[in-house]
Write a protein that binds this DNA or RNA. Structure first.
Lengths: 205, 205, 205, 205
DNA sequence: TGCTAACCGAGACGGTACGTCCCGTCTTGCG
DNA sequence: CGCAAGACGGGACGTACCGTCTCGGTTAGCA
């Protein structure tokens, strides 16, 4: 994930692959201990047993580093077939909440999004590294529900994409808001209530 | 909003009331120009024509100051009666989106929420200054819809409160996610689609 | 000695006078221990129990600081009346050599002169803080020798000044070269030989 | 001049002789442009079209490199017979001053001498590479003056050597001090005045 | 002619110091 | 006692060089 100009010159000592892993791991550990705002790149470097220059050679700054460090957490999300659309949604909501409960994700996610409001390249990085990758869950859940006959097939691909985006914003937004803003637990009871609301809306559509 | 111990001593020169307003205004201006992360208290003080000490005498730090500075923005939200539940929801969604479009709100809101994940008093301040005050919109919209017969009366007050919280998380979360994470416009078309989904879910409940 | 704009505004907390002394003393100590090239301003600051910013607020850099720290050493030079021109010269040569023997002077003097070859303001600072102040020794020695009848009175003040400058360059240059370049001891024997040469040249003039 | 262990193994690719010359030339160019303190070995290497490793393989550091780079400048000094001791001295003083006027010599000479106050091997290198080699001028000037009958023959070789050292320190020290510390021109007028003083002292001896 | 050892360029590496910025606190003198 | 001004001790920043260490590739001289 760290940046490198695409036209890779073959010359010189190659970058250490081990350093990358150590840095990202150290970043997550520092996020857990210190949180976003007290995390310093110097500290990350010394935790990773690496010089500050090595870190700056690969990432432009704290924001980019943290996005890379946290992105991998969200790849754990899966969508096992639980037999119904509602069950699938409940499952993914609870999984997502579990990730947001981890301190490194909680403190970092909102912070980088906040930074991204004034930094277009960062927003793009967040989108490609984190957000866009998880839309797969919506798409897979829908096609599975269509196969079950729970949802109608959509003929217009543009409208279908818009609906997927909408669902994604609703699900991700609601869970994040509940967990981080309202600071209330995303437990099975809440997940069930939310799912009933959402499935009802989809059905009535 | 600035803090003051309750047992206010009456002696000495009183604090300048004008200073408070100047500081909050300067804070918003600095947020627009610099964004959250590059805003410094020294800069705010000099913009406000005030000494740094004056500022620290009234607010504990950047977080608290910014919460106060942006809280007022959200009090602009109103819920004029547009004749139907769906129209009321669309209206508030668009108003909320308009506020989130303002750079001082955009950059500050997510940032203070991010900070609040590791700072319980800050979270409480955000809740009382911003979040909780806007729940009135949900409650008012519901009672109006019930008066219109669009929604049933709820007998159980606990369940009613839970539903209101859920709706609030869904609306606020979805709009914020659309605007700041997906970075897509919250326009009338999206508001209409979102409202249809939500009203459908509420009806089917 | 530290810099301050001449138009001193009277407002704000005044600078600590104690800090100045502590910094200059710490600088001399660091010169003794580390020498010029390994002296760091961060180290000086922490020796002086002072923040780096305090140091940078008062001196533009290492060069200026060291000039001020070392200048005082050369003010120790005196010219007690030893009864003859030759004895006076020998005395000041040995005193000068004693100062150059101190490690803080030895390592610093040449270094700041070297830097001054590319830094006109620094050269000026060296001249006013160190060099020019010691010309008094030449002038006093001459007038005393003239009073004794060892040297003729000079009528032309321009020529007199030129001669004083010449003597100063010869004495200071020869001692410095012997001590630092040739790295040979400036002992009584050498002082005597040098004095004989110089007095002979002056007499034959 | 670059270092090499005496027991040279004969195998492998030999070091490029061209690189040596390029490096020394690049060092002089960098001294002119940047001065001693801003000269970096990385910059010298890239100017010379050479890798940093190549440079470090041959010189221990900046000091040693610069001594070698400037030593050659002083070998230009000559002592053509100008017919009298005074004329010979004036000639060499002006030649020496001309070299000291070159920026690469000016900035480097004092700097390496300053460094040498804390680095005995460096002092030795300076002495053998630069200082000691120029004593030939004193010796040659004296023997020529003796041949002309301007100076007496000295019987005691020890005393003769001491006198030569003294003269060397006086001439070199005075010129350096005039040029670099006093920062006044070493022109014909000054050279004449200085020479008169020195010759007078020698004669009266 | 093919081996092989030392050379070469490039550039990443762990470090150290830089000079700047901002923090939150602490004197000042004035109102 | 509040206030503007600004110095204070402190900590992190991002950069520049240090001197060392791989890399892949070149260039002799000896076999």
């Amino acid at each position: 994930m760290p940046s490198r100009l695409p036209s890779a010159p073959r010359t010189g000592r190659p970058r250490s692959a081990a350093a990358d892993a150590a840095i990202l791991e150290a970043t997550r550990a520092a996020l857990v201990e210190l949180g976003w705002s007290k995390l310093t790149l110097g500290d990350v470097a010394s935790r990773a047993g690496v010089a500050k220059t090595t870190l700056y050679r690969r990432w432009a700054g704290k924001n980019e580093l943290v996005v890379d460090a946290v992105a991998v957490l969200f790849d754990e999300l899966e969508l096992p077939d639980r037999g119904s659309l509602a069950a699938d949604i409940e499952g993914v909501v609870l999984q997502f909440a579990a990730i947001l409960d981890r301190p490194e994700a909680k403190t970092a996610l909102m912070a980088v999004v906040a930074e991204s409001t004034r930094d277009e390249p960062l927003r793009e990085r967040i989108r490609t590294s984190i957000v866009e990758r998880q839309k797969r869950l919506v798409l897979e859940g829908r096609s599975r529900a269509q196969a079950r006959g729970e949802l109608p097939l959509e003929k217009d691909p543009t409208a279908a994409a818009r609906t997927a985006d909408l669902i994604f914003d609703v699900v991700a937004g609601a869970v994040v808001h509940r967990a981080l803003v309202s600071a209330q637990p995303v437990d099975e009871e809440w997940a069930a209530r939310f799912t009933r609301l959402l499935v009802g809306g989809l059905a009535g559509d």
